[in-house]
Nucleic acid binder design. Structure first.
Lengths: 223, 223
DNA sequence: CTAGCATTCAAACGTTCGTTTGACTCCCCC
DNA sequence: GGGGGAGTCAAACGAACGTTTGAATGCTAG
């Protein structure tokens, strides 16, 4: 029987994943030791290798747990927007993309906040296998959104669109990862740091304007 | 006499800093061992502790070497723009800010490219002492640019400006760090990846449009 | 009740980590 | 031309790393 009926099914796994999420975010992968991790999770040192096989496999599990549903939500949002042959606007598309990520930011209790910061930090990590995994988990959603934007902005050159998506992706990633940097700019801590709704409005306005930036004729192959 | 006349003054230091730049970028701080680092630099294992005192002090030296001149260049650019009481436009200010960073990107030979990627990765690193150092090194330039933008956009609310600067900073950082992510979006590698001039135009257009995004009345304290 | 399986546990494995040591080399200056 | 400081070197330090082991535990099915 593959199913365990009543008991705390895989509670140890969950506690390991939660602790890993937070500690990887705080100290990186190499900077997080199995001893610290298992201590934080309140499980035995050997539990990670028993349940996941190795530290590397644990890292992959951490990302799959959150990224699979998140990108599925993104695709579902786009499906909804494109129902009945409707062609969604750039702003609608942008909002559909950033919402699932921002939603995780609100989830301070179940550790979603930890994951978004971990994710933002991972985008800039050149570790080969990790990049490959991230790319693989993102590819389907990314293709769908690229196609949607191409349909919404038929007059924009393809390579320009690719770069603007890159910028948007970066802004979004950075926003998830490092909300604290506002302090550096502001010189003090802003009061509305965790007002997700307001942040979504600000970010959508910024990204929509950037995506729709005028196409200067100077943007050509000629340097 | 404090000066050493002719010989390869502090060549060992330089080789350590160059190797550290590349390896920290590739594997992070905790992921880079002193043995690998000194081997790559072609120096003795004890050299780092002799010349810098510790691994942590080496990290700080790596950032100071590049960041001090870079932010000095940013301030100098702004000085030039504001000469004779001229009030620079948002686009001029943005260009002045991003140019020094992008210029380093071109410098593949002397390792500047390595540093920009390292820098982008560090922005999202929550390591306490490192964030403090970065903040301290950036603070003067950041205040100047904030003041310049406030003068250029007097009608924009302060907190909205802070967030838009945050977004701009993030886009810039991400662009420096992870130019390879375009491949994920494009599905193939774009040909003009290292055309810095073109990248500057694209980035400036995107950021200027984002900064000047219309101020919706819905952006208020009310959630 | 008991055989069998999944899980937990303390202890130890060999390896690698950042740092320190003390002898050695080189070159400048008196 | 010999004393001295700066720099390099091989070797070793204790600590911490990821992983493995084999016995102990608790639960379920027969």
């Amino acid at each position: 029987m593959p199913l365990r009926a009543v008991k705390p099914q895989h509670e140890t796994r969950t506690r390991i994943l939660d602790a890993a999420e937070e500690l990887f975010m705080l100290h990186g992968f190499e900077g997080t030791s199995m001893r610290l991790l298992t201590a934080k999770a309140g499980v035995n040192l050997a539990a990670v290798n028993y349940h996941f096989g190795s530290k590397d496999a644990l890292i992959e599990a951490v990302f799959r747990r959150r990224l699979d549903p998140m990108n599925a939500a993104r695709i579902a949002e786009l499906d909804k927007l494109e129902a009945d042959g409707h062609v969604p606007s750039p702003e609608e598309i942008i909002r559909a993309f950033i919402t699932p990520g921002l939603r995780l930011t609100e989830d301070t209790k179940a550790g979603g906040r930890n994951f978004t910061r971990l994710l933002g930090r991972t985008y800039t990590e050149p570790n080969k296998v990790l990049r490959q995994l991230i790319g693989q988990l993102y590819a389907p959603a990314m293709q769908r959104y690229k196609a949607a934007l191409e349909r919404a902005l038929p007059q924009m050159p393809r390579d320009e669109l690719v770069w603007r998506m890159h910028f948007m992706f970066g802004t979004h990633a950075y926003t998830l990862a490092a909300t604290d940097t506002v302090q550096l700019i502001a010189g003090c801590k802003p009061e509305d740091r965790h007002d997700t709704r307001l942040l979504e409005e600000r970010l959508t306005a910024f990204l929509t304007a950037g995506l729709n930036a005028p196409l200067k004729t100077s943007i050509r192959k000629a340097a």
